[in-house]
Design a protein around this nucleic acid. Structure first.
Lengths: 151, 151
DNA sequence: TTTGAAAGAGCCTGTTA
DNA sequence: TAACAGGCTCTTTCAAA
């Protein structure tokens, strides 16, 4: 599944792009010590292989009108039902991430909403869409988030 | 703090860059219906204001050698100690995100490691650095993650 | 897989409206 | 604020090793 392991050069490229997603190929080439075209080719390959899944601007929740973050744990109401919860939740755009977890609960969602009222409405939609009970943990502040991994 | 609210044009730009962080200014200009230089100016302003906090390649944890994700809840050992936990944890690069939360626990961390042994070692370092008890929820799979918000 | 070169596309500044 | 025009940089493809 994991062919060999990421080559050091690819590792360096991925690390750099994780930290600075808009880095130019020229800069990238300098940093990893390859020609521009060689770097270009490797980046394309990393994208094709799915090592790089995409690029995103990281936005400030406060400033884009979604100041309220929460973690929502899901417990199935009907333990016999088929486990298609992610599909049932996919259309709810307030859900940024969905993790299937080991433990008392089945899933944990990370969501962002505009207000407590928005959270209330979101919870209602999650419960209805997925037939689950929810337990919500409100995020008070975010000391740091989305740091790039050390490869 | 949130001057007025994000203008529709800035909103469109932020939305596009959240979905496609490497989008060229030329494409961006077409999509939002402005000239390239006007878009350029707005993007720079969004970056300066901190609406856009940066750009990142989204990497596949499996393929970069960090297949194990976990959520770790922290409870202070000494409730009287000053609350500088984020600072105490900042240097631990396996911690991708750190949320201060309302509830039984004080913080929730999202971490990525290479193996169960790596997780064990990480937990030890977290407990030592921050003087906390930990409760760990292992992520079994990630149906989706880091979706861009709907502005 | 890497390089270098070359053409085109895109970036970005200064100026004008 | 936005558009335009320039000079310059970056991207992308190609042939060669």
């Amino acid at each position: 599944m994991n062919p060999t392991q990421l080559e050091p050069l690819d590792q360096a490229i991925a690390r750099e792009l994780a930290a600075n997603g808009r880095c130019s190929f020229t800069d990238l080439a300098e940093k990893v010590g390859l020609s521009v075209s060689a770097v270009h080719q490797r980046v394309r390959r990393l994208e094709q292989r799915g090592v790089i899944r995409g690029y995103a601007a990281r936005l400030d929740g406060e400033q884009i009108g979604l100041p309220l973050t929460a973690l929502i744990s899901l417990t199935p109401n009907d333990p016999g039902a088929p486990d298609d919860y992610p599909q049932r939740l996919e259309h709810i755009t307030e859900i940024e991430s969905c993790y299937s977890v080991a433990g008392d609960e089945s899933y944990i969602l990370l969501v962002r909403v505009a207000s407590p009222l928005g959270l209330e409405d979101l919870l209602r939609r999650i419960r209805e869409s997925a037939k689950v009970s929810t337990r919500t943990t409100v995020v008070l502040s975010t000391p740091f988030e989305g740091r790039s991994p050390t490869l």
